[in-house]
């Protein structure tokens, strides 16, 4: 029983990171209707950014978020202007391949610049654990989870109460109507994309103390994020929150009770099943056709 709870808890902890990655992806999709196949690569870049900031400036990854966030917003804006803006109104295949191309570029750029070596950051508390009764948790993972929770809460508040947040939601529901109301849709696209990229970068920083950085690490997390986004309902940021935790738990359980190598296959199968039976997400409200 303890073992089971232990597995569930570690699933929730990793799920918190998935939430941050998936929220960005979901926000981008909701607003621009583009699925960013390069999302995982921004997470990978976030990990490397956190790694180098720690290595050269000695700033711990959790603090480095305050550098990474503005940095990735700028990167997001540049990528939006160069690649996303020309394809927002184009066909699916164009959008898929432009972002897939980006992911190939970033993955291999990382390989070229930083080699395929696994990089880790060793913090004083990297191996520390905390115990709650019989449950033992890695301190670094707990901090990562709490930071993820704070960022998630901040995102939800931003969406709910700020003008930008309202505009983002308006555009994601009805962009023509939003345009009529005087919202500059293209600017909202830019904002959504940059925030999404920043969230991927932040997730990378959160992961750095508990995971390795390597050029293809993004693929691993972005596929999990796709599953979360579809499960939560495309563009539904709150749905992503619940789905992220569920996927974390599913992954943890299947890794422990089935086989670690098969955990991806298990949530992919879950993903395909969800796509088939509930393409609008598990929590989709019934809508009139």
């Amino acid at each position: 029983m303890n073992e089971f709870i232990q597995v569930i808890v570690s699933g929730i902890l990793i799920g918190g990171i998935y939430v941050v990655v998936a929220m960005g992806l979901s926000l981008m999709f909701g607003v621009t209707k583009i699925i960013n196949f390069a999302h995982g690569e921004f997470l990978m870049l976030g990990m490397y950014a956190a790694y180098f900031i720690y290595k050269f400036l000695g700033i711990e990854p959790y603090t480095a978020i305050f550098i990474i966030t503005p940095l990735f917003i700028v990167i997001g804006m540049i990528i939006y202007k160069l690649v996303i803006n020309p394809i927002v109104d184009r066909k699916h295949e164009i959008q898929i391949f432009a972002t897939l191309g980006l992911s190939i570029v970033f993955q291999n750029m990382a390989l070229f610049l930083w080699s395929a070596d696994f990089r880790t950051v060793n913090l004083s508390y990297s191996t520390a654990t905390v115990s709650f009764g019989d449950i033992t948790i890695s301190l670094a993972r707990l901090i990562a989870f709490l930071a993820a929770a704070v960022i998630t809460a901040a995102m939800l508040l931003l969406l709910k109460y700020t003008y930008v947040g309202k505009a983002l939601r308006a555009v994601s529901q009805q962009n023509t109507a939003a345009e009529l109301m005087g919202i500059k849709v293209k600017r909202i696209y830019l904002i959504a994309f940059s925030i999404g990229i920043a969230l991927a970068g932040i997730a990378g920083a959160l992961l750095m103390p508990v995971f390795y950085a390597f050029p293809t690490v993004g693929a691993y997390f972005s596929l999990a994020a796709f599953v979360v986004v579809v499960m939560g309902g495309m563009g539904d940021v709150t749905g992503a929150l619940i789905a992220g935790l569920i996927i974390g738990i599913v992954e943890s359980l299947s890794g422990f009770y089935v086989a670690a190598e098969l955990k991806e296959a298990i949530y992919f199968v879950l993903f395909i099943i969800i796509l088939f039976i509930k393409p609008n997400g598990l929590f989709a409200r019934k809508e009139a056709k």
Binding site: G101, V105, Q107, N108, M109
Partner: peptide
């Protein structure tokens, strides 16, 4: 020259051609 460089260029060509 280095691992991955040819794929960086490949990816860039892909993005540009598709757009």
């Amino acid at each position: 020259v280095g691992q991955g460089l040819h794929l960086v260029i490949y990816g860039l060509i892909m993005v540009v051609v598709v757009i």
